[in-house]
Design a protein around this nucleic acid. Structure first.
Length: 576
DNA sequence: AAGCCCCTCAACCGCATCGCG
DNA sequence: GCGCGATGCGGTTGAGGGGCT
């Protein structure tokens, strides 16, 4: 039953154990300190009665939950195969050997039978995990290579937290490995105040998605969007409770609503980290609590389709009323940005709290060249967005942790049934859809205006010029356009080379971000983002005070109510 | 050297999905 | 259609190690 140990070798504290079993040679590398425990485990497994004396065995004993009923619950069956208590905690080499032998003999699958047939005191679930994550012969051990890291980032941009799918594209790597890597990376970059996705990857993926689009991958997307474009949307009131932004970590992003109000959102939290990411997309657009997780594809604009689609709900979002988690509506607002036909803006009535009969594209259809759209959003000193219910925005926006929670929030039931995108769920899908929608919207506008023909061949958001597409209908469209008409897009900036962003009436020196301890593979041009609060404090907005900030009352309201970053509203007030 | 903090990663846990009777 | 077991997936936890003070 047990392997015949062949030889032992010790090198630099690592013991190399070789043994043969069933004409197969196994080699195991073990830290020296574990030797005693391993031998102890061998005895334990072989006899099912073991008095452990080593330190590691003591740890195991305390952890393995032999006497704990939770073990049975955890593995959904408890004792099987003759009443053997199931063990928890770290696997020993002996257990590994048993499992390897079993799988070698019987193949993968039927994991619950492992315990029955091999005597291994582990539940099937644990066996499967151990095999998949550590014992599989095709596993690639060691740190991720730079190529793999980049691939992971690209995949995450496309897929979101679909670890298993990502692992399938990274031979020899496990979902757990990738997940851990990503989570670590997220934390690291959060600390450093960096965006999650480097701009080059976004750009590359946008290009890929665009190619897919041209190949017809998203052939139905436009029509789907166009289905709801002309509709009125009722966006529910929303309360941002317990929301605090860690504003010192990242620059806020201003979202100016059609009345000129400003929602000041830390850019890193909402935009650079996730509004554009699959998880922000998913969770922010989710209209149901994270009770159910969706398998397979999730739609970025899930809330806009299915139950929330105008075709089904006359433009309202009933489920949005039902479930409002922190920030979800905000995300809806932002995520919906591109989904709203600019034509609708004229219908907007600021007094109708919670209801935005029309709304405005987040970017007002404008992006600048050379940067992916998601990155460009960060550049805006002001972003237009259909933020609903200003009067109910009674507290600051989510803290970073809150946002993290939102990031991690699973998609919703609706997302599954509301797929707009066949690929869904990734940042780049979001960008793509936004691009598509903007193009559709522009097309409509151009048709209606039947005047100047703007080059619709402009392939992507990043090819659009600010001043060229001033929204002729939005109360602020023109203003915004005028504000940005002189905006000079930058490209190829780097942290070593702070950029000057030309703004009307002012020049804003590009803030140099602390890129922290990260590996530096991500280029430093991720954010070309003059801090909006800086802009507010500069005289930049003096130029805009007759346009963006002509509604003193609303600003005062925002300031008093502490909406978003009240300080920013106050700053704006003081600037004005 | 000791204590603390932070990071990494293996493993657990809960839930969803699938397939079968 | 329903129940159940097997499997898969993603979020979370906690032990252990390394670095810093």
């Amino acid at each position: 039953m047990f392997p015949k140990w062949g030889k032992f070798g010790v090198t630099k504290g690592i013991i190399k154990l070789s043994f043969s079993k069933s004409n197969t040679l196994f080699t195991k590398l073990l830290p020296f300190r574990l030797l005693q425990g391993v031998l102890g485990q061998l005895l334990q497994v072989s006899s099912f009665r073991m008095s452990m004396t080593s330190e590691s065995d003591d740890r195991m004993t305390s952890q393995d939950g032999v006497d704990s009923p939770s073990v049975e619950e955890a593995c959904g069956g408890g004792n099987t195969g003759g009443g053997l208590p199931l063990k928890k905690g770290p696997w020993t080499s002996a257990e590994d050997a048993i499992l390897v032998e079993y799988v070698t003999k019987h193949g993968e699958g039927n994991w619950n039978a492992v315990q029955k047939h091999s005597g291994l005191a582990r539940c099937g679930k644990s066996c499967r995990l151990r095999w998949a994550n550590h014992l599989r012969p095709d596993l690639k051990k060691g740190a991720f290579t730079p190529e793999e890291e980049r691939h992971i980032i690209e995949l995450h941009a496309k897929m979101g937290n679909k670890w298993a799918r990502m692992a399938a594209e990274l031979p020899g790597r496990t979902d757990n490995e990738i997940k851990n890597y990503w989570n670590t990376r997220i934390k690291r970059r959060q600390r450093a105040g960096l965006p999650i996705y480097p701009s080059d990857i976004c750009f590359q993926s946008i290009t890929e998605n665009k190619q897919n689009e041209e190949l017809g991958t998203f052939s139905s997307a436009d029509s789907q969007y166009s289905d709801f474009l002309p509709m009125n949307y009722e966006i529910p009131a929303v309360e941002f409770k317990r929301l605090e932004f860690n504003q010192h970590l990242c620059p806020p992003v201003l979202l100016d609503i059609p009345t000129g109000g400003i929602l000041d959102i830390p850019g890193r939290s909402l935009l650079s980290q996730g509004l554009n990411s699959a998880y922000y997309s998913q969770s922010f657009l989710s209209t149901t609590p994270p009770a159910k997780r969706i398998r397979g594809s999730e739609s970025l604009f899930s809330g806009l389709n299915g139950d929330c689609s105008p075709s089904k709900n006359d433009g309202s979002f009933p489920t949005c009323h039902q479930h409002q988690d922190n920030g979800s509506l905000l995300a809806q607002s932002m995520g919906f940005s591109s989904s709203f036909n600019q034509n609708l803006i004229s219908d907007y009535h600021p007094s109708s709290l919670g209801v935005i009969p029309g709304s405005h594209a987040l970017l007002n259809g404008h992006t600048s060249s050379s940067e992916p759209s998601w990155a460009k959003k960060l550049e805006l000193p002001s972003l237009q967005s259909p933020i609903a219910s200003w009067g109910l925005l009674t507290s600051p926006l989510p803290s970073l942790d809150s946002v993290d929670t939102l990031i991690q929030s699973p998609p919703t039931e609706h997302t599954e049934s509301c797929n707009l995108s066949p690929r869904n769920s990734g940042l780049l899908d979001a960008v793509l859809h936004e691009s598509q929608t903007m193009r559709a919207s522009k097309s409509i506008l151009h048709q209606e205006n039947s005047g100047d023909v703007v080059d619709n061949s402009c392939p992507d958001l990043h090819m659009t010029e600010w001043g060229q597409h001033g929204d002729p209908i939005s109360p602020l469209g023109h203003s915004a356009a005028s504000v940005f008409s002189e905006y000079t897009p930058t490209s190829g900036s780097s942290s070593e080379d702070p950029q000057l962003v030309t703004m009307p009436a002012c020049k804003v020196k590009q803030e140099k971000f602390d890129y922290g301890p990260y590996d530096g593979k991500d280029d430093a041009s991720n954010l070309i983002c003059p801090r909006p609060d800086f802009l507010l404090e500069s005289n930049c907005f003096g130029h805009m005070q007759n346009t963006l900030f002509d509604d003193y009352t609303l600003l005062a309201t925002l300031s008093d109510q502490g909406c978003g970053r009240g300080s920013c509203a106050r700053n704006a007030m003081s600037t004005i």
